[in-house]
Design a protein around this nucleic acid. Structure first.
Lengths: 223, 223
DNA sequence: ACGAAACTGTAAGGTTGGCGTCAGCTCAAG
DNA sequence: CTTGAGCTGACGCCAACCTTACAGTTTCGT
């Protein structure tokens, strides 16, 4: 499971440079150039492992975004990027719950180092199993258990379910599933429906439901 | 009580890097660069929760240190660090009672992950014989017993089963088996399947099953 | 030293199960 | 009612796995 980053940066040139650089180490980097849009995205999408946040943004400042994020109990690590050398911004940022701070201009090497450092912390939280109702994923062993009994799945179904439980409770659209669970592998659109069908049968008499959200995708929830 | 680590490593640069890295997560890291000194320290000081052991050391090799340790009934988990070339040393190390190994050069992230994993098992009994159902491995004597009667196995089958019972209940992938049980020795992919087959016959009417996890490997479980 | 027995690994053919497409169906939205 | 998205059972392909046979090698007793 590759780490997923969200880059919030309005300068297109810098954004593309960073995206390119970070993509070398990390599978997926989404980019948004607008504070309001970032808030919207983050309210719907809880799967990011790290947020790179510019402070000087259109519509909503980075500090606003961060404040909203923490107010909603998001714990995703945040690395602040800003041109303002102003020291009070840094203090404000850290007070608001940012995890690190980098002043522009910065060396790409240093950014990478800090990103790695923040992502490394992710692993400790990754030691804990993910659970939803009586379904449970031990991420070390890559092993599902349902009602305390081990549930062995074929590789594809396993990946799909792992992806769904990661975003437990929120809808995940098909394109994203294709992207994250089966990156690159030629998986037809219909194939996912078949996996879902097979998974539903396995989860039939448990307290976990795999609901379909028409026009969007699927969502895993507990009864 | 914070975990306490002993690092036995003679390269000063690597030693300081590791000490620094590990100190972030763990309160105390002691470091010793000499095999004989490490033995002395360990004979007096039984409080370590984990030992990181380089194999290539002055005065006494890491394997000697480990052997002495186990001969004195020390049960402290040991993580071996060794150059990738010395493959047969890893097997020796694991046979002598090491708990994991890591080949140099390694990523710091990976080291941290393994250290965490080993510390997590801290309380679970490490010295007692490993048992699963009516199958039991006496690690001192390297002897299996099944339903109280001793089960003598050919060397290869023994190593395979030992590796499987060590990860009892979780799937172990073929690559890992090849690596840990038969490191280096030219063992074709199909050979494992043959061993498994032979082991299954021996375990046929017991409460231990050797299940295959398609696309992954094998898993030992009790009925 | 010699032969027998046990161990080891490869080859070959049979079996299984995951995978993905299809065709026909259901069902919700407009 | 129409339409298109999603559901579902069936089918064939293929890779992974099982099983047996056999030949080369080591171990061990005599």
């Amino acid at each position: 499971m590759p780490p997923k980053l969200l880059l919030v940066e309005d300068d297109p040139l810098l954004a593309s440079t960073l995206t390119e650089t970070l993509s070398i180490d990390h599978q997926q980097v989404d980019c948004i150039g607008d504070g309001g849009a970032a808030e919207t995205r983050l309210s719907r999408e809880h799967g990011y492992d790290l947020i790179l946040l510019d402070l000087n943004l259109p519509t909503r400042s980075g500090l606003d975004v961060l404040a909203t994020l923490r107010a909603h109990d998001h714990v995703t690590p945040v690395l602040i990027l800003t041109a303002r050398a102003a020291i009070e911004d840094r203090v404000k940022g850290l007070d608001l719950g940012a995890d690190d701070y980098l002043a522009k201009p910065f060396a790409l090497d240093e950014l990478e180092a800090r990103v790695r450092a923040l992502l490394r912390r992710r692993q400790s939280s990754q030691d804990d199993p993910l659970t939803l109702g009586s379904l449970r994923l031990d991420r070390q062993r890559q092993l599902f258990t349902l009602d305390e009994v081990s549930l062995s799945l074929p590789p594809r179904e396993h990946r799909l379910l792992a992806c769904l439980i990661r975003y437990a409770g929120e809808p995940v659209d098909k394109a994203r599933l294709l992207d994250e669970a089966f990156a690159g592998e030629s998986v037809g659109d219909n194939a996912i429906e078949v996996y879902v069908h097979r998974l539903r049968r396995r989860l039939a008499d448990s307290d976990v439901r795999l609901r379909t959200v028409r026009g969007i995708g699927y969502l895993l929830e507990s009864a």
